[in-house]
Nucleic acid binder design. Structure first.
Lengths: 184, 184
DNA sequence: TTCAAATGTCACAAATTTGAGAAATCTTTA
DNA sequence: TAAAGATTTCTCAAATTTGTGACATTTGAA
């Protein structure tokens, strides 16, 4: 894939994340190309949106799986999943919203949904394991912890733009806050 | 203000929160009125957006001030500010984004900005007070706690649509997680 | 029931956005 | 430097969105 195409996709993800109906001119501006160039890479708006979604699905999935597989220790897996989400940036927000959205038909027939569920099951498994070990508050359901998890990722990503702190510092703060929030 | 007008504004806030460029037809549909009716209440899109912003500013401000004034105890003030934010729903997300947004010119000349800063100063004051009392982790800057605060509000509001739990239950979970995250 | 206010239906022009052709310009590399 | 490929510029028609006039229908209060 060319560099330009990648740049357009990244820009589109960032713009569409906040404003799905934004004019393509905005996306083009953000990617520092002409609208004409954008249309040479993508037949139409629908195609661009579809490619964005697919990019999001595959890159988030990859990052999450890799975080899980990076260790046998549930606590470290959880920490790395948090960092992976933060590193995915706006992509993670959309990834999460895509499947949680109430007018999204979540079904196992859809490969993306099946993969999402697979990752979420692993996440649940990690939480339950940590609850057994007494490292996570048993009163909090895995469902709620998932909400908290994505919430902290999203706000950390947003904070990156406003704060004076370094990216590493806020990632550390995010993990500290998160783990303290869920320990018994 | 008529009921219809209020409903249009509420719908617009919810739609524009996720998609600022959404066609007005979407807003009209969501408010269960025709586009023609919408245009009878609002001259044009700009006016609608402006009214939404003003509604957000004033209702969030009101809710926050009232939470702060409801007690002398900093811990209770903080808890009520969290609940107030959650009760504001999508409005709070926009309120926060409006002023934190990097291309927003934040200036005291603007009454809304001045009010926002006033509230934020009070928030900071509460955090610093709690840190003095040893109830909040001194390592976490008020700046970061503000990020966490709005992040937890936003994800709790979103969770409301997906979770099976009652609204009261998730509000409680939100506060528990939040306070545990920031206690020393 | 009756009238007035609110809302809906339909139609239409203006504005904006979209998508693509044609030729000019810039970049890369052989 | 010359040729090939990528991008920009300019243009334009089609599609969509926007705002409004004219009139019909519904609703609520007297």
């Amino acid at each position: 894939m060319t560099d330009t195409k990648k740049r357009i996709i990244e820009s589109a993800i960032n713009i569409f994340n906040e404003d799905l109906s934004a004019p393509l001119q905005k996306v083009a501006d953000n990617a520092a190309v002409t609208r004409r160039t954008l249309h040479r890479y993508f037949k139409d708006r629908n195609e661009l949106v579809a490619v964005c979604k697919q990019t999001i699905e595959s890159s988030c999935k990859k990052a999450m799986i890799s975080a899980i597989q990076s260790s046998d220790d549930a606590l470290i897996q959880l920490e790395r999943m948090l960092y992976a989400g933060i590193d995915c940036g706006a992509k993670y927000s959309v990834f999460y919203k895509l499947h949680q959205n109430k007018d999204h038909k979540h079904t196992h027939q859809n490969k993306n949904c099946a993969d999402y569920d697979h990752i979420y099951n692993q996440f649940q498994h990690i939480i339950i394991e940590l609850q057994k070990e007494g490292k996570v508050n048993p009163v909090m359901s895995p469902e709620w912890i998932q909400v908290l998890h994505s919430g902290i990722i999203e706000s950390t990503v947003n904070a990156r733009e406003t704060t004076t702190k370094s990216f590493e510092e806020i990632k550390e703060l995010a993990w500290t806050s998160y783990i303290k929030a869920i320990t018994p």
